[in-house]
Amino acid sequence: MTTPAPFAAIALQLTARSVEDCATREAVAESMAATIDDTARKLRASCVFVEQYGGTRVRLAVLPEYWMTSYPGRIGVAAFAQKAAIDMDGAEYEQLGRIALAQDLFLAGNAYERDPAFPGLYFQTSFVVAPTGAVVLRYRRLNSMFAPTPHDVWTAYLDRYGIDGVFPVATTEIGRIAAIASEEILYPEIARAHALRGAEIFVHSSSEIGAPIATPKAIARRARAFENSAYVVSANTAGIAGTAMPGASADGNSQVVDYKGHVLAEANSGETFTAFADLDVAALRAHRRKPGMTNQLARQRLELFAPIYSGRVVQPADSLIARDGALRIPDREHFARVHAGVIERSAKEGLI
């Protein structure tokens, strides 16, 4: 396996544009296309500055969570899938592919996506587009409070995609890349599962509260990087436009974190490229192969924990699969009901 030379990575902090006021799918598509065009211009200018400033080529850019549409809000699952979720072979990916090709970089982002195997649903998908223009990684968020996930259709999803499709890792010319979606950075098992499959760089698209104090996600990014000896490139939104929520509620603190848990760069608020830094995958690999107390990944004793995890159900799988195997399209309240049931059962079992 060829080890790449050091390269620059940018966490591009952009405003998410809500499509809540778009009346039709055609209007949503026009809005998303305009957002991608705007992203292309801003990324191109950002790469020019970073390469002139530091002298290192930009080979990886990460975009924020759901920056093309914002979150669904109270729109029903099926209605949002029809209105605003993109297709796996849709025009949006073609447009993003042209950006990656023109800039000769890997472009990571996050969008709501329809899968023809699960009609009426959508999944929140983190993706990586290669410099060839092709999508080389598609990861669907596994832990979400108010939206469908592969775990909610677990049996059917595994039958279709297998475990490789649940925890995908892309082997690329700049290193092995995996994606973590939004608040999943708070769940160490997800990052660890990717790391155990070889991931060296976590791309993290988020839309979260920015603050001058250490937020839970900021703490978690450093922890996930250190405990897995992996880089984290995390792009937050620069606020959300077009909703009733105050615009800067999810703004700032995009970060690049190295494999020792050190923050290499961090953005302030607003639209900015200033969370950029050089990534040295050769140094990361040397660190992983060196015996020592700080080599957390090589010190794992996984057999210790297997009996605790095995057979223990907290959040149930297949909540959207009916007893006859049919797919159920949920209302928004379904997820809250499942969550309340988990808490009630866990309390009875003395788990919480």
Results as ranks from 00 to 15, higher is better:
E184H: 06
A27K: 07
A250P: 00
G239L: 02
T243V: 13
R289Y: 01
S18F: 01
S144M: 10
Y231Q: 07
A117W: 03
T125R: 06
L327M: 13
G55M: 13
Q300L: 15
E303V: 11
S18E: 01
L158C: 03
R141P: 00
R323P: 04
A230I: 09
S310I: 10
V342G: 03
R312Y: 03
I86R: 11
H204W: 04
A277W: 02
V62N: 00
R301G: 02
G54Q: 07
N228V: 06
S249C: 09
V62P: 01
T2P: 10
G97D: 08
E51T: 05
A91Y: 10
H287K: 05
V281C: 03
I99N: 06
Y157A: 04
V281K: 02
L351C: 05
E65R: 12
R41E: 09
P212I: 13
F202M: 07
F276N: 03
I343A: 15
S70M: 08
G165Q: 06
C22R: 15
E92D: 10
A178H: 05
Y231H: 09
R301E: 11
G133P: 05
T132E: 12
S182R: 05
H287C: 03
V50I: 09
I209F: 10
E92P: 08
L297V: 08
V62I: 02
A102E: 15
M88D: 10
R114C: 15
T237I: 06
K260M: 07
D318R: 03
R345P: 04
A108E: 06
P148F: 03
F305A: 11
Y93G: 06
I177C: 12
A170N: 09
A193P: 01
A223D: 12
I201A: 04
F276L: 01
A322F: 00
P131N: 07
T24H: 05
G54W: 05
A235C: 02
R345A: 13
R59E: 11
M1L: 12
Y161S: 03
R98S: 12
Y231R: 08
A244S: 12
Y259L: 07
A108H: 10
S46R: 00
E333R: 14
L327C: 02
H151Y: 14
D38Y: 04
V314H: 06
V153D: 00
G73T: 05
V48D: 07
A265W: 01
T24Q: 05
